[in-house]
Write a protein that binds this DNA or RNA. Sequence first.
DNA 1: GGGCAGGTCTAAG
DNA 2: CTTAGACCTGCC
Length: 288
Amino acid sequence: MNYNVYEKSLNNKKYVVIEKPQNLQLSQIFGCGQAFRFDPVGENVYGGCAFGRYAEFEEKDGDIYINNCDLSEFHEIWKDFFDLDTNYAHIIDSFSHDKHLYKAATYSSGIRILRQQPFETLISFIISQNNNIPRIKKIIENLSMECGEFICEKNNKKYYAFPTAEAICDLGEQKLFELKTGFRAKYIFDAAHKIKNGEIILDKVFSMNTTNAVSYLCNIKGVGPKVAMCSLLFGFSKKDAFPIDVWMKKVLKEHYGESFDLCSFGDNAGVAQQYLFYYERCINNIFA
DNA sequence: GGGCAGGTCTAAG
DNA sequence: CTTAGACCTGCC
């Protein structure tokens, strides 16, 4: 994507401006259910944690302002976080042959697939199973507060980094249960434990194709195809990963028939999934 | 108070 | 290989 970015100072604070980025709308990006740690903290401002930092993003006149950020941090973290090198307009164009998908994509055209930290997405989507978004967010926040590194205090709130596998493993299953994770406590522990002792090596996943990566991640208790696909899409930037949840089952049934061919969505099936998922939930009034 | 929420496990045919 | 039930918890 072609975009211009520059650094500015105001009141002794640095910030980075991304000029008129295409296909980037904060409310859609943080509201579509791919990330659980960002919330509105003002008019057109979203704040939250990623990569061990607290960040605030503001949308003004089509530009994106990143508070307390310099260019080196932008290039180190947020450029890839927002997947800025991907041309989403081009992806949407490639969906134009599919009438329903194209409609969903046009409606959701401000969504980008964030590149989040692999371990965080893995644990977050384990927590998401048979759960609702407000409670998922609360559990993740409690978990981070319990054993994540303290970052800063803002908006009368303390922010903590998402914990490491080691920290979660050391916490133990009982403590995880006490954080109201319910039956997922043993799953979270198993994931953290297997990663801590090297039984699962997340770095290896990057070099696997999506099919192999799914079966690899499914070696973790509580990780099935849906959780694995979400982690691969949002945490390993595998854009062909196609999570099928209750909403997607509904979409596939209504618009594609029972015997749909996943290949028809191509290498960007995961992006298609996110457009369809977001659009479906919006027309069903799930998001405010 | 029963149902439900971005699923997965387990036990049984 | 496919398919019911069960499952923590909190909010409706």
